[in-house]
Nucleic acid binder design. Structure first.
Length: 581
RNA sequence: GCGCCCGUAGCUCAGUGGACAGAGCAGCGGUCUUCUAAACCGCAGGUCGGUGGUUCGAAUCCACCCGGGCGUACCA
């Protein structure tokens, strides 16, 4: 079933073609929700811009568009106003019908993509042998939301957790483990990875003999020497267990099968360089092999290059990223590559994409996208750190989120206790944390503020979760199973019902917009507006005591639809709901 | 220096080239014998960093400037 915006859009396209000719058939009708109720439900602004282009007075063109096709089945009123706005007011019966269709649809009107794509989403990417910290939060949460949305739309989503499991730092870690009696083959038990890392680093800096042995271990590892490899593998395995624990708690859909670390591409690196050589794209600079994508300048305004092979023959992240992208396109069959990393890597990805195009490894049809995001700042507007200046550990952040949520629930709803309260605290705390990260424009830095993210007012997860709870509480109180409701029972009677209906019907378009823009905050904004519309409805429209059975049924269906969109929308963001809070 | 990003109410943030710029918090004032008041309603609060430009129309697009952040090859 075409959703209502699509219906209007299609009809506008037909009208424009009839009035302005086939060459303007594809013109965007500039359909928007109306700025004010007196301008109807939706407005099309196409007449002003198109009128100018084809030399017809906008008002005249608007009137021609209005009379070119019939709107009667959809709109009770179509008016031309001001300089050439076309204002549409839907027929209530049409809205009823649309809502009924949405209510009967398990996908809530969100159609699966007509031509599914293979999309690789690269996100999270923590480092082996280190605790996950606050710096991994945004990539993990935003990337997961994006992957969920694309998957829901029927795309084949391949998650890639590009963990940092390779590099010279493993020399000191291996040497440290070996010296502390860790036997190759033992399962590694490292309670605190961060501590191990620091200890190894300290030793490396203080002890020259140790450092020399550590460097030797790097060579061993690269050569596949069994002891070095075993210890390295043990480190990777322990780290993956740590990551999995954090992901489970965060409700992030990254599993072991999604882990494809830097080491995976090792054996491809020489070939990458050879192929770039063969393409004539590499130049010599101070002993390194360098690719210069056009348009990049360094501090001295000389061409800025990507080093793909160091003077000493080693490879860098640029080489690995090239190999990974090529693998994802050629082997995994990706139509779209998405990288969710902080905005500081903007230039790196711009160069990487330019290089991929230049090498012909990313054909024109493949979409390459960096999804940049800003930093997490403390209230002092400086990057968030602990008092001692260290990175804030993610598991500590999660604990604190749940603790704080638990305290709030204990205060506000003393009836809730025991394991149920714990479960609710988990959903509220983690949800609040994730939502705070998702609800603003991702490119901006955001200020990490417990009180704000856990507030039950404003654009927060608890507010949305509470709106859901309030809906569900109606069904509990009325002892009604929403599945037994007749979906077709909707009959809008009140203005606040109509506002709620229009809001609900936007859901499919919003999900599509998020999939295209990769901006989850749009979905957040929508859910917040929906919850607000529901609360107004809730104030004005008694449900259980609605009197007439038809009205009561209609409102119950509206309630259920609201609950399903709220829960479904939050689910797309990776945030859970609870029945009571 | 060059490049990228940010600048909207006291604070935290929305805002798709369209009609008088919107929320939440904080402030002031209302509304619970009635489905969770964890809510709702109202009042007050703005040279949309600045100056030009494009446009019938600019917070939104362009140029320059002012603030702030980040990047600027042998880490990732």
């Amino acid at each position: 079933m075409a959703h209502l915006i699509q219906t209007l859009q299609d009809r506008l396209a037909a009208a424009i073609e009839r009035v302005a000719g086939a060459e303007h058939a594809g013109t965007d009708p500039l359909l928007r929700p109306s700025a004010q109720p007196r301008f109807g439900d939706y407005q099309a602004n196409v007449a002003m811009s198109l009128g100018k282009a084809i030399g017809t007075p906008p008002r005249k063109l608007a009137e021609a568009i209005v009379t070119a096709v019939s709107w009667d089945d959809v709109c009770e009123k179509v008016e031309v106003a001001g300089p050439g706005f076309i204002n549409f007011t839907f027929r209530t019966a049409f809205l009823d019908e649309q809502l009924a269709g949405m209510a009967a649809d398990p996908r809530l009107g969100v159609a699966a993509a007509a031509s599914p794509q293979t999309v690789v989403v690269d996100y999270s990417s923590p480092n082996v042998a280190k605790q996950m910290h606050i710096g991994h939060l945004r990539s993990t949460i935003i990337g997961d939301a994006i992957a969920r949305v694309l998957e829901h739309l029927g795309h084949r989503v391949i998650r890639q957790n590009h963990i940092g499991d390779w590099g010279t730092q493993f020399g000191m870690l291996i040497e440290y483990l070996a010296q502390s009696g860790q036997e190759a083959g033992d399962e590694l038990k490292v309670a605190d990875l961060e501590q191990l890392y620091r200890a190894a680093q300290q030793r490396y800096e203080a002890d020259e003999t140790f450092a020399a042995r550590a460097r030797r271990r790097v060579v061993d590892l690269q050569a596949g020497e069994p002891t070095a490899v075993k210890l390295w593998k043990a480190l990777v395995e322990e780290s993956k267990r740590h990551f999995a624990g954090v992901y489970r708690r965060l409700g992030v859909l990254l599993g072991d099968e999604d882990v494809r670390g830097e080491s995976f591409y090792n054996e491809m690196l020489p070939q990458v360089v050879r192929d770039l050589e063969a393409l004539g794209l590499l130049h010599e600079s101070e002993g390194a092999r360098v690719l210069y994508p056009p348009g990049f300048r360094n501090a001295e305004s000389e061409p800025l290059g990507m080093i793909v092979r160091k003077r000493d023959g080693g490879y860098l992240y640029a080489t690995t990223d090239l190999a990974a992208a090529r693998y994802r396109i050629a082997t995994l069959g990706a139509d779209r590559l998405i990288y969710v990393t902080d905005s500081r890597q903007n230039q790196h990805f711009a160069m990487l994409f330019a290089a991929l195009r230049e090498a012909g490894w990313a054909p024109a049809g493949v979409r390459l996208e960096h999804v940049p995001f800003g930093m997490v700042l403390g209230k002092d507007r400086r990057p968030l750190k602990t008092r001692s200046g260290r990175n804030v550990r993610l598991d500590e952040v999660l604990d604190e989120a749940v603790e704080r949520a638990d305290r709030i629930i204990a205060r506000k709803n003393p009836d809730l206790a025991g394991p149920q309260r714990r479960e609710v605290a988990e959903a509220i705390g983690i949800g609040a944390l994730k939502y705070a990260d998702l609800s603003g424009q991702r490119i901006k830095d955001y200020i990490f503020d417990w009180d704000q993210m856990l507030a039950f007012d404003g654009n927060t997860a608890p507010y949305l979760q509470n709106a859901y709870v309030r809906v569900r509480s109606i069904f509990r109180k009325g002892e009604i199973d929403p599945r037994t409701l007749p979906a077709g029972a909707i009959g809008i009677a009140q203005p606040s019902e109509r506002d709620l209906a229009l809001r609900l019907l936007q859901f499919p378009a919003i999900v599509a917009a998020v999939a295209d823009s990769l901006e989850p905050h749009r979905l957040c904004g929508f859910l917040y507006d929906l919850a607000t519309a529901y609360h107004r409805f809730y104030e004005n429209c008694p449900v259980l005591s609605a009197g007439e059975p038809a009205l009561r049924n209609s409102r119950l269906v509206l309630c259920d639809l609201t609950a399903r969109v709220l829960a479904g929308g939050l689910e797309l963001l990776g945030i859970g709901t609870v029945e009571q809070m």
